[in-house]
Structures are given as C-alpha cells and as structure tokens.
Amino acid sequence: MSAQTLERPSVPRPGGGAGPRPWVTVRTAMARWGLRGTALLYLGLMIVLPTVVVVARGFGSGVSAFRDALTTPGAQEAIVLTVVLAAVTALINVVFGTELAYVLVRYRFPGRRLLSTIVDIPFAIPTLVTGVMLRALYGPISPVGAFLGRHGIQVIFAQLGILLALLFVTLPLVVRAVQPVLLELDETEEEAARVLGASRWLTFRRVVFPKLRPGIVAGGLLAFARALGEFGAVVIVSGNIIGKTLTAPVLITQLINGGKPEDAAAVATLLFGLSFVLVLVTERLLATGRKETS
C-alpha cells in the first residue's frame, strides 16, 4: 500500500449522487482503485469466501442437511429453546432498551453519564466473564442465590439464568441503536403535537415512535441475532441439560468436541441461515430508515 493510496480528496460528497466526476487524475484514480481493491480483498477473503464455502457446503446437500440437523439427538429441542429465548430477550430489551435510551437522551438527572457508561459495560466484559459473574451472584453459595433458592427460584442451570445472560449481553445493542435516532429528533414536533391537544402518550405513539421504529427494529434484530448465537455467557450458566437448558451454540461445540463435525455443521448451517436472513432484513430496514430521515 503506497502513500498515495490512502486518500482521495476529490471524491464527491457522500449523498451527492453519481454526478459527473470532476477531473480525475491518474493519481487519484490509482488511489481510489488501491483503496477499493484493498477493501474488497480484505472483506472478500475474510468474510465472503468462508461464508460462500459454508453456504455452498451446507445448502449443497439440500434438504438432507436440515433433516440431519433435526435428527441429531437434542438438536430440535436446542434450536427451539434458542430461538424462543432469543425472541424473549429481544422483546424485553426492546422495551427497556428504548425506555433507557429515551431517559438517557431526554432527561437530565445526576448520574446520567454514569448510567450511560454502565450501559456500555456488557460490550467491555468478556462474555464468559458475564457467565462467571451471574454464577457468582446467583449461585447457591452467594447470599442472593441462596435466598432465591429458598423461595424456589432457580437461576443458575435454569432457563432464567440463560435469559439473564442474554439480556445482559444484548442490552447495549438496543440502546445504542435507538439513541442516535432519538438525538436527531426535532423536539418541536413533539411540542406541536402537544399544543394540538395530544397527550404525552399519544405524542409518543404518533410522533416519536414512527421515527424510532427503524432504530428499534434494527436494535431488536441485532439483539435477537446475538442472543441466537451467544456461547460464552450461556455455557457456564446453563448447565447444558439436554432438552431443558442446552442451547444450539453449546450443542454445536459439544458435537465438535465429540468428533461429529458433520452433525455440528448441519446444526450450524440451520442457525447460520436464520442469522443471515436477519442481517439482510436489518440492512434493508436501516436503509429505508435512513432514506426517511434524510
């Protein structure tokens, strides 16, 4: 990569459309192609190639891959459990994450910055440590875990523990997806609605929410996808009881460790298909969201 390849000062402004290019010197053309080539090569080798290979191999065997995936012992239960828990996680965090983003953007109160920092903590902590933390808090040797246990609430080695781990890991995804949209909202539109007689709740529903929707949906889908694939935070907390607390990602590692890479690949392909569709949907939503706000 030569010095000239990194910057092209005469490229048209983003959003300026593909109008006629100003004089393109040989050097800037080289620079553009150098940058473009580097980017394409990097993403091509690192992301596109492995994805294509796996998709080709996974779906190449057609329906049989799915049959394999679903006949693998425990796989069906694991996938259902994973999808359901991911959906519940996304739903809960969409509600509380949106509320949290709203409070962080709109209200001024002591400790607001601290709260904002704490929301980012799950990004910073290794997911496995999240599991360790939950076990330290809710395990039977901790006072909290012991107390809950006496009242018949089991967190560790139960679905509740998995849910808590997933909620923890995905919270910042939703908050950070909604926050920028909220920041860009014109508050006088809300005032206009209030002057016209709309209540607080109606104003939120009819004026604020329609604009937040793309952000909320994108954040929710990201959270869902992340929860679908989460391993580190779950593995220590879940106890991995087949049909009860064994999630699909954990099942895949067990299959690999058990020397059954074909079965693992089948389950992985199914999970991958779900995630891939999700990304496409999210991209589409974000694209339309951007169009609407610009």
Binding site: G229, G232, P249, A265, A268, V279
Partner: peptide
C-alpha cells in the same frame, strides 16, 4: 455481528 462465534468456528 449476526453470526454466532460458534458457527465461525465451524466454518
């Protein structure tokens, strides 16, 4: 962001 790390390993 959407693909499980476990799947990345399988890949």
């Amino acid at each position: 962001l959407a693909v499980s790390p476990v799947i990345v390993g399988v890949m």
